[in-house]
Computed example of a mutant assay.
Amino acid sequence: MPIKLPSTLPAFDVLTQEGVMVMSDSHAAHQDIRPLKIAILNLMPKKIETETQFARLIGANPLQIELTLIRPSEHISKTTSQAHIGAHYEAFQDVKDRKFDGLIITGAPIEHLDFEDVTYWDEMVEIIEWTQTNVHSTFGVCWGGMAMIHHFHGVQKHMLDAKAFGCFPQKNLAPASPYLRGFSDNFVIPVSRWTEMKQGEIDAVPALRTLIGSDHAGPCLIEDAEHRALYIFNHFEYDSETLKGEYDRDVAKGAPINVPMNYYPDDDPSRPPENRWRSHAHLLYSNWISEIYLTTPFDMDKIGQTTTDLRG
């Protein structure tokens, strides 16, 4: 079954043209099932690009998904039109009385700041705490994942000497995990960040389990069963040319930037980049949606009252 999107959302036409199953509100109303309610707290400046990337991944499964786009109430986007925001996004303060089967918290281009120096950090703390009562499973991505792991466990992020930028090889460290069902032993994931969380500091927290890691880029995917959460520090959701766009932007500005590692054929930026992560991206998000479907209460009022073990 498809993902339910407003027909006016740009992702609706993009995904329809790609062959992803999408459904309008009027069509979904005729189906007598309970769709999974998934929300995205979109903190990225290019909101249309980001919402399309995640909708593509969570829509590629046989379940009906009802998507809600959320923005921080205390932050006004300067890079996406207010007409788009007003038509398709809801402020967190307006949805905090509702419950969701799943929530994705995206990255944000503020990693150079200490968490407590982010202008909307107080609301982020409120949102992270809210996930424990109103969300069945939360997926924190890049800065969003680091923010969650910092709040719940006190793990710090550290500045890197140089930007981790490219497609870094990863290892499947937990082949039996339901989230890695179908994964290869080794694969690549796009990475684009100036900060890291250190494996040793994560290992020091008994509640955290590293599922994917890299000798070159450190921990990647962390499971936090106690808080019904996954944290991923890299970007499976990226399109084929997302890293190219970041590279071209910095080159045009004269900013220091290395050619993204292991991304262009023969590391030659004059050649089209190769997407070697798409299949694993779909696997991960499909596995996450499947786990939500298998474990979420049918009665949404019971979300937040279940055992900390998603399969308990």
Rank of each mutant, 00 (worst) to 15 (best):
E246N: 02
Y264L: 07
C220A: 09
I257S: 07
T210A: 05
D268A: 03
L230T: 01
H235Y: 10
N258Q: 14
N234G: 07
G254A: 05
P260E: 02
V259C: 02
E246D: 14
A252P: 08
N234P: 09
E223M: 05
A217K: 05
S240M: 14
K244I: 00
E241R: 11
D248W: 08
L221P: 10
Y238G: 07
C220G: 02
I212T: 03
G218C: 11
F233C: 05
Y247M: 07
D248L: 15
L230G: 02
D239C: 03
N262L: 00
P265H: 12
F233Q: 14
I212W: 01
D224I: 00
I232Y: 14
E226A: 04
P256I: 01
G213H: 13
G213Q: 01
P260T: 00
P260Y: 04
H216R: 09
N258H: 03
A229D: 03
D248P: 15
F236D: 05
P260G: 04
P256G: 10
A225C: 08
P265R: 02
Y264V: 07
D267Q: 13
N234I: 01
E223T: 00
I257T: 03
R228S: 13
D224M: 05
E226H: 06
E237A: 04
A217S: 15
S240V: 13
I232F: 08
R249G: 06
I222W: 00
L243P: 07
G218Q: 01
V259W: 09
P265T: 09
D266N: 14
I232V: 15
L211I: 06
G254K: 11
L221S: 07
I222Q: 04
D266F: 03
A229T: 06
L221I: 12
E226I: 00
L243V: 02
Y263K: 02
V259M: 04
T210R: 07
